[in-house]
């Protein structure tokens, strides 16, 4: 395997009762690229996402990440390895402030335990201050630091998306997985999102993107994979994928061909 491969999924299969959601899906994501995963509704994109981020366990298949095998089905270990994600339907901690949401994202990188927390040892204190500073930095990075003390549920839709990205970044990922980040956004918000993703790529982060907005994917992604009925039917640079007859069939139906 070449050095520039960050993540390699091999033969991932997942069944729900009688439904085969994923059928031997393999794909590779290279370091520093924005990788798009598209497909019609119900093609298995989110299922794949959930396997990759540990919320589901896979029936078959394995994933190597940065050369090591991922413990599928154990989200905290996957986050620890350096994959973090956002959700299609935004999932923030509603009762917390924006800042605290991001601070929760740091959880896995922190060490303070019960004793440290109760005694507020110098180490614990330093860690806490550092966490808050880092959280502010990330809020600034996604452009919403002025909202740090707002309750998460009071943020506008676009800002909630940004907050979720900041929280995901707080875990210190090498791969950031975004589940339909542009869903429900207007043109201005989508443009802002696109700029943010490009900024993250420029800063060396690898991004996996599920998206419905084909235009956004084709414009933003370095490479794209297409899922249909739980199978990967194409994986290449956008220009090639765009002309792939199987992809056209999947999207437009057989009659249109």
């Amino acid at each position: 395997m070449s050095d520039d491969v960050l993540l390699a999924a091999r033969g991932i299969s997942k069944r729900f009762g009688g439904v085969q959601a994923l059928h031997a899906v393999s794909l590779t994501i290279r370091r520093g690229e924005v990788y798009g995963l598209i497909g019609p509704n119900g093609a298995g994109k989110t299922s794949f996402f959930n396997v990759l981020t540990g919320l589901y366990s896979a029936d078959e298949g394995s994933v190597t990440f940065g050369g090591a095998t991922l413990a599928l089905g154990a989200p905290h270990r996957i986050v620890g390895a350096g994959i973090s994600r956002t959700f299609q339907n935004i999932r923030l901690f509603g009762a917390m402030s924006a800042l605290e949401n991001v601070m929760v994202g740091r959880h896995i990188r922190l060490r303070t335990g019960v004793i440290g927390a109760i005694l507020r040892t110098p180490a614990a204190r330093a860690e806490e201050a550092d966490t808050a500073a880092r959280a502010h930095e990330l809020l600034r990075y996604v452009g919403i630091d002025r909202l740090a003390n707002q309750q998460a549920t009071h943020l506008s839709y676009g800002d909630q998306r940004r907050l979720e990205i900041a929280r995901a970044l707080a875990t210190g990922p090498r791969l950031l997985a975004l589940d339909e980040p542009a869903a429900g956004m207007n043109a201005t918000e989508t443009a802002g999102l696109r700029a943010l993703v490009e900024k993250m790529r420029d800063d060396g982060l690898t991004v996996l993107l599920i998206e419905h907005d084909v235009k956004l994917v084709m414009g933003l992604c370095d490479r794209v994979a297409v899922l249909d009925y739980g199978e990967k039917i194409a994986e290449d640079v956008p220009d090639v994928v765009r002309r792939d007859p199987r992809v056209i069939t999947a999207y437009l139906g057989t009659e249109a061909v």
């Binding site: 729900f16 009762g17 989110t46 959930n50 919320l55 589901y56």
Partner: peptide, 8 residues
């Protein structure tokens, strides 16, 4: 009971 599908 049927196994309730895991839902994220």
């Amino acid at each position: 009971g049927e196994k309730v599908a895991e839902r994220a």
